[in-house]
Design a protein around this nucleic acid. Structure first.
Lengths: 217, 217
DNA sequence: ACTATTTTTTAGACTAACCTAAAAATATAC
DNA sequence: GTATATTTTTAGGTTAGTCTAAAAAATAGT
């Protein structure tokens, strides 16, 4: 059983390691958790004792398979609650992150299964991120940041990388929501800004924004 | 701002004081919180510092008006979540207490208002207890325990006192849910057991049970 | 390869909950 | 009305999570 704080650390490690595919450094984790390296070292010891991560001094942290499935359950809960907030309670997709951060720690397997059923077993959350199933299985759809594609590209917005509320508000304003059609009309070499077509209207976006729009197809 | 633990203590004090109408003793609170008197004394000091209760040594604790409205907000959240679990997710009314104990601590005024709207502004929860409105106003319907009424009484089940899961399961089995018609057919002087009519079928119940069935009318 | 810098860990201290054991205050008993 | 029993508080200690400051290990520069 993990404490609320331990659960949050584990989730951060899971994300920083790209789902367990690389080691996470102490400082990176301290930054992500808005805390100090010393506190991270303490917590790392606890999480290794609970066998959700492995730890090599001065090298970094890796998630164990037990840790992965625990992290995926938290992510499942987070994304199901976000879906509930948007689909059922009428929240805007940029307002749900903070509340879901609280709701994801509610511990009741039965509640989550009932919620999943109530929502009609959704595959993705309101930001386009895949929702792990009750066994922790996640369907990975390869998603490419818009800034890495060329003029003429045409496809669909799959998800949004950052969950910063200001970014989400901005994207919502220009109509850039998951599922919407998108096309690259032009690119400016100087600052890497772009002109794009979102659902048939033209918008200019900076590189900072195009990096955060993930597309498929 | 109260911590999760402080919130739980305050709620217990509110209930033990019958909504703020009498003082609560240290030992009674220790019993209710399944903890020791010494820990209660510590917590009482914190809660007085935060001005949600007043405290006189060796005499007891009283809830301030600030404390009352904070307690009512937690109760509001608890009862709205219980209603959600039963009405929307299909939980049985005897399964919701523990989960609601967790959900009641989620801090988001917007979430609670949206949830209230989604549920259609319910007046009572699945156990028949009144739900405080967004201003903390609660509609008190006088409820009488069944064991205090005479043969021939006829009315409606308003609520159930205890939230013990076994009691609730039993009541559910004999059909004794809030809103159901009830009539007292007979009373046994020896052990104060009763024969009653629930929704037109006859049942025998012990005094322990009749004390927990609250009725109106 | 030997300093210098950066990163990480250790050491020691803080706060919020909790505990046990002992002291103090209140209530009860004769 | 003094002695006994009960209740409540104080005193001192524990654990989880945090911090700052200093020590140790790893990396980089010339």
């Amino acid at each position: 059983m993990l404490s609320l704080t331990e659960e949050n650390y584990l989730k951060a490690i899971y994300h920083l390691s790209d789902g367990g595919s690389k080691a996470v450094l102490t400082n990176a984790l301290a930054e992500a958790m808005s805390t100090k390296a010393a506190s991270v070292t303490d917590m790392i010891k606890k999480l290794s004792a609970k066998e959700v991560i492995t730890y090599e001094k001065y090298y970094g942290v890796n998630v164990t398979s037990k840790g992965k499935s625990e992290a995926l359950m938290v992510i499942r809960k987070h994304r199901l609650w976000e879906t509930f907030l948007v689909d059922k309670l009428g929240f805007a997709w940029d307002e749900v992150h903070e509340v879901a951060e609280q709701l994801e720690h509610i511990n009741s397997p039965r509640l989550i299964e009932k919620l999943d059923e109530f929502l009609g077993y959704p595959k993705v959350d309101p930001h386009g991120d895949p929702i792990p199933d009750h066994k922790g299985k996640i369907k990975i759809v390869p998603q490419i940041p818009l800034d890495q594609l060329a003029i003429g590209y045409q496809g669909k917005i799959a998800a949004v990388k950052d969950s910063d509320s200001n970014l989400l508000k901005y994207l919502d304003k220009i109509g850039a929501r998951p599922g919407v059609k998108i096309k690259i009309l032009g690119k400016e070499d100087y600052d890497e800004s772009m002109e794009i077509l979102i659902d048939d209207h033209r918008v200019f976006i900076s590189k900072a924004v195009s990096q955060n729009i993930l597309v498929v197809g």
